[in-house]
Nucleic acid binder design. Structure first.
Lengths: 220, 220
DNA sequence: GAAATTGTTAAGAATTTGTTAAGATTTATT
DNA sequence: AATAAATCTTAACAAATTCTTAACAATTTC
């Protein structure tokens, strides 16, 4: 779920944009002035900014220069070539003139998010106190690093990825020893025991639930 | 010096674009049909593609779907919202309608190149005591030059570029021996051992961490 | 309460990693 | 073209880590 900051002082336009984006499942934050936008940017992380240029208190151009690492799409009534060039060269990623077409706006948002996340690292898998950093092969409990072996990592990754399902013993074994037919239930039990013990070092809560006769799952 | 492929069948427009871009110092390759474009793409590497949609032999839309990893700006007379959305969603990064403004085109090209190359800029890669001078192929530890072989340099560059990720052994091997299938884990281990020893000559700290069963990463 | 399943523990087997040195290969130099 | 220098690969062994095995305890189901 991507978070988008909409910076636009005209309430009618603001509402139109908000409705359009909400329908697509984006999470919207609203700013009605430049200074408000900066305040929000300090507090939270956004995946994209939709920015009007003519704002009270602080112009869109100034915001562009202050923002780094977040893609910006300018949405402006100013349609002169100079305005566009100026914004694009000083850091904006796209420039759309009003009145705009909803579908086109959505497509251009898609382009920016696509660009950002193809290079970016994978999103971590979070569940309550657990956080699995996929590109780091690291499990955090309460933001503390837990040292896992390759197999333990594979197990917790599988459970977290299928959080609402029961993972049968066989499925877990498959995912652990991809090719080898060493599949041994006893061994799996030991791994899960060790994994539980390691997690228990950092929290009181039990996260791995045994489903008698079937397998394991993440406790709800 | 960036290389741009211009795909446009109208010779007048083609010449205008070519002149505009040449003045800016870009290196231009010209294709006057879709099939010609594909042939050129197989032969050389480009940094950007300027693409007309209505082409002989193969449409621009088809090319968009075949191209990966190279930013595409569509330059088209088709100005319907559906055309834009279609292209953007199937892989184009920007869409400019004809007639276009030269300065705006240049600015939008700038945006695409900026995005692509912001990651591998020539800025030195710094991390604690380490500093990798990319344009110099030099590693400094405590501002002292460390003599690295080509392979050792490739390894430390990869690790530093992906500082927060674990680099799997395979990924490292790929980046070392781009084409050759000599991929040998044993060899990689020796290189890393040598690299560690060289760094150890200049500092007490260990920088390369082994992730058992997975690969290596820069120690936090 | 008996049978089946799951949990824990510890030892040694197996795997992976680190280091070294010798031989092969590539690159530079005369 | 031949030699020297540097780099890379291979192989062997030591060290570290992880995995499996097996025995026994605890728990659940019927």
């Amino acid at each position: 779920m991507k978070k988008i900051l909409v910076v636009e002082d005209n309430i009618d336009i603001h509402n139109i944009i908000e409705e359009l984006l909400s329908k697509e499942g984006f999470i919207i934050s609203s700013a009605y002035s430049g200074t408000e936008a900066l305040l929000l940017l300090e507090k939270q992380k956004f995946d994209l900014i939709l920015l009007d240029l003519m704002l009270p208190a602080m112009s869109g151009e100034e915001i562009i220069k202050k923002v780094n690492h977040i893609p910006i799409i300018v949405l402006s009534a100013k349609c002169s070539s100079d305005d566009k060039v100026n914004c694009l060269l000083s850091g904006a990623n796209d420039y759309i003139t009003k009145p705009f077409d909803g579908k086109e706006l959505l497509a251009r948002i898609e382009v920016q998010l696509r660009q950002k996340y193809k290079s970016d690292s994978m999103e971590p898998l979070k569940y309550k106190e657990l956080e699995l950093l996929l590109d780091n092969h690291t499990l955090l409990v309460h933001n503390q690093k837990v040292n896992l072996t390759k197999t333990e990592y594979a197990i917790i990754k599988n459970l977290l990825l299928n959080r609402n399902q029961v993972m049968t013993k066989n499925k877990l074994l498959e995912s652990i020893s991809m090719d080898t037919e060493d599949c041994d239930e006893n061994s799996l039990r030991v791994h899960i025991s060790n994994l539980r013990k390691k997690i228990r070092d950092y929290t009181e809560n039990e996260y791995i639930e045994s489903i008698w006769g079937i397998g394991f799952k993440i406790k709800e």
